[in-house]
Amino acid sequence: MSDINAAIDAEVKSNDVLLFMKGTPKMPMCGFSGQVVQILSHLGVPFKGVNILESDALRQGVKDYSNWPTFPQLYVKGEFVGGADITREMFQAGELQTLLKDKGLIA
């Protein structure tokens, strides 16, 4: 495992809810990243945002790690949930709330 891959893996496994995104939760640089920040904030679940625009190595590394070509990318308890579409569809269907409750991350 390369250094960047190991670093990403450690980040994914040490944060209950992790969002790889363009920009930061306070200042998303892309509408799709902003949508997922809004959903997570609305649900009141603490999460860490990682700005993949800070480094090309990180950006490519996360794409390879997840085998997913675009951002944002949401992880819950070390498991890849999906990008903006899947997160939004799950939220609208109530499935994201169920997932977060089942994992004990929201009441």
């Binding site: 070509p69 675009t70 569809e89």
Partner: peptide
């Protein structure tokens, strides 16, 4: 949903790598 997205991403792998980013 995740499987469907992965199936489509795989078919469009080249386009996503070259140009398409959303």
């Amino acid at each position: 949903r995740l499987q469907r997205h992965r199936m489509i991403n795989e078919v469009l792998k080249q386009e996503l790598a070259e140009r398409v980013h959303a």
